[in-house]
Design a protein around this nucleic acid. Structure first.
Lengths: 158, 158
DNA sequence: GTCGAATTACTCGGATATATAATGTCCGAGTCGGGCAGG
DNA sequence: CCTGCCCGACTCGGACATTATATATCCGAGTAATTCGAC
């Protein structure tokens, strides 16, 4: 899985901690995490296309959350960055080759390997969809209540 | 996820259907699935390293199941091909950058994003580990009882 | 006809190319804020 | 002093390199079967 997923999740959390009143530019976000700004910009664009963030062009522009963290799941973030395709893709290998010259009567049922893989991946997706970014923020806030304020303080001066 | 996972799973099932009395060469397996033989060989080597198959060198050589399908889970196959690493890898991005100059007191707890990702991936692994290849074989056998015999017939002549 | 050794054909195993995707960089279009001239 | 316009700086957005990974290929080491000859 690409590193952009981690970047995107932490950026969304940070945008919430900083308050959603004004947009934050790619440069400042990247400086806060010490990651390549232009590449981060690319990931943020993906979040915009997915409807998670909104982009404000021009000077003093940047990105802002399009909906509260409560309505953004980890699944949304992963899907936005990694794309909608499933990790395992069945190519119907069982039907290929001259091994079975019988008609496709035997292959009406879906491929058993594919079914098992899809089932497992569905569990994964369910778990991701069950966790909203608000849950994560609250978890962090409980273990470090003053983190948000410290972040705001630093970003004010940068 | 690489295509090798699909190949490996189907090859294991096929080896069982053909009976495990004699080894089957890479060339014959690849011919049955219409996939590049040399590349399939690479994946099978990974299965050997993982202890799922045993390789028989020399003429009339090939591969054979090292244990019954009942003792091989889909998780074993995936781990053998894709490697043992987790898909999501936390780089502790939260601690990077000058944004937080406080000591690491705030970061004793594990990263919340990482925890959620690991939890979801654990669900995925559990689901894969719960399905043995014997389960899949039985599923196919129920929907197509004579598939195994047809496969044996064809492979006898090739 | 039987035994035995050299030969041959075949297979795995890993080292080596190529294609594809992930990562990283760069420049142009657009927009806001501030400066500046005019009234 | 106030207003409106122009200029400059800043930012997103997508097009363009670079690196890593997955895919595909090739050749050597080794083994079993086969063949050939001698007894």
């Amino acid at each position: 899985m690409g590193a952009g997923v981690e970047w995107a999740a932490h950026c969304c959390l940070l945008l919430d901690w900083l308050g959603n009143d004004e947009a934050v530019s790619t440069a400042r976000l990247a400086a806060g995490f010490e990651i390549p700004p232009a590449y981060l910009n690319k990931q943020l664009q993906a979040l915009v296309r997915a409807g998670i963030l909104t982009s404000v062009p021009g000077a003093r522009g940047g990105f802002r959350l399009d909906r509260p963290l409560r309505k953004i799941t980890l699944m949304d973030v992963v899907a936005a960055i990694e794309g909608p395709d499933e990790a395992f893709e069945c190519t119907e290998i069982r039907q290929r080759g001259p091994g079975v010259d019988t008609p496709k009567r035997l292959f009406r049922r879906p491929c058993a390997v594919d079914a098992a893989m899809r089932s497992a991946e569905l569990q994964w997706r369910r778990a991701l969809a069950a966790r909203t970014l608000a849950d994560l923020r609250d978890t962090v806030d409980r273990s470090a209540p003053d983190l948000g304020e410290q972040l705001r303080d630093w970003y004010v001066h940068n």
